[in-house]
Simulated assay, not measured.
Amino acid sequence: MSAPRYDVLAIGNAIVDVMSPCEDELIEELGLARGGMMLVDTDRAHELYEAMGPAREISGGSAANTLAGLSALGAQCAFIGQVADDQLGEVFAHDIRAVGIDFDSPARPGPPSTARCLIFVTPDGQRTMNTYLGASQFLPAEALDEGLIASAAILYLEGYLWDPEQPRAAMRKAIAAARAAGRRVAFTLSDAFVIDRHGDDFRALIDAGEIDILFANKAELAALTGEADLEAGLAALAPKLPVLVVTRSEEGAVAISGGERAEIAAEPVEHVVDTTGAGDLFAAGFLAGLVRGEELGRCLKMGAVAAGEVISHFGARPEADLRALMKVRLG
């Protein structure tokens, strides 16, 4: 097997986040699922945007955020995702390349427009996300470069993108290419609603040994296994995966690999400003440790440090020097 060109190559939604602080009352008034993520159509996206106060536009997307964290930690990364040939598409492409990530997916001409996520952030830092998938749901399988996928040590897939038909086919093709090249496949479940719609697919992939590293939170673990109890869920799933990582918000995280179990507490954060991207950056820190051959507990700690940084400010991508922060927190 040849040495990998990239540490991690990710396939995910190419989204620009539109973020605005709001009061809890607005969440209720708009009938939103507080703290969750909903898919919205064009009309609903316009309605929600009109209801927003002053907003910031920041390139996002779950897998792209993870790569931004990985790149900040010195990893070599590439991204595959679909934007439209429009202003937001140019913003996304510029931002991801500016942090050192290779992104060569050609823009899609004509409608629909580049995806955007309208995020309402309440005073406690909780984020309520409303995603218009736009062009991102039209990533064709034939656009994948199998040689590029084979050149990455880890293929990282975003569960959110499993919903639309075209990118789901593209990700299946990517999994086959990665496995044929002897590379590892990492998958993040993204949200319980994705599991409600596609849990059978995910369980089949796991049972077939197609996933090497799985990221989930407590709710996603319960939805996937049918076990409300955390320990029961871990016991049901861990034996089927080389690496299982489960985050528990303020309760920290646990990882199980080859019978080894590690747990860490959440990083202390003086003031939680915005929880957008916490799981994405946790995955970034964990994977950064994994590709360097760090032991399981240290990988978890790196994930917690990265997540703690991103929830201390608006936006789902790191603002502090993550490498310097790791030295302070981990030594």
Rank of each mutant, 00 (worst) to 15 (best):
residue 210 E to H: 13
residue 211 I to M: 10
residue 211 I to N: 06
residue 211 I to V: 15
residue 211 I to F: 12
residue 212 D to W: 12
residue 214 L to P: 04
residue 214 L to V: 13
residue 217 N to D: 12
residue 217 N to G: 12
residue 219 A to H: 11
residue 221 L to F: 04
residue 221 L to A: 14
residue 222 A to H: 03
residue 224 L to K: 11
residue 228 A to S: 13
residue 228 A to C: 00
residue 229 D to T: 07
residue 233 G to Q: 12
residue 234 L to Q: 03
residue 236 A to S: 14
residue 237 L to K: 09
residue 241 L to I: 12
residue 243 V to P: 00
residue 244 L to I: 05
residue 245 V to M: 05
residue 246 V to Q: 05
residue 248 R to A: 14
residue 248 R to Q: 15
residue 250 E to V: 14
residue 250 E to H: 13
residue 251 E to D: 14
residue 252 G to N: 05
residue 252 G to M: 11
residue 252 G to P: 10
residue 254 V to P: 13
residue 255 A to Y: 07
residue 255 A to P: 09
residue 257 S to L: 05
residue 258 G to V: 08
residue 258 G to Q: 03
residue 259 G to P: 11
residue 260 E to L: 09
residue 261 R to F: 11
residue 263 E to L: 04
residue 266 A to F: 11
residue 268 P to S: 10
residue 269 V to Y: 04
residue 270 E to R: 14
residue 270 E to W: 00
residue 271 H to V: 12
residue 275 T to D: 02
residue 276 T to R: 09
residue 276 T to A: 10
residue 279 G to H: 05
residue 279 G to L: 04
residue 280 D to V: 06
residue 280 D to L: 08
residue 285 G to F: 04
residue 288 A to T: 02
residue 289 G to M: 06
residue 289 G to E: 06
residue 290 L to Y: 13
residue 291 V to Q: 01
residue 293 G to M: 03
residue 294 E to F: 07
residue 294 E to D: 13
residue 294 E to Y: 03
residue 296 L to Q: 00
residue 297 G to R: 15
residue 299 C to A: 04
residue 300 L to R: 12
residue 301 K to S: 15
residue 301 K to R: 15
residue 303 G to K: 08
residue 305 V to S: 09
residue 308 G to N: 04
residue 309 E to D: 13
residue 310 V to Q: 04
residue 311 I to C: 10
residue 311 I to W: 01
residue 313 H to N: 06
residue 314 F to P: 00
residue 315 G to T: 09
residue 315 G to L: 09
residue 316 A to Q: 01
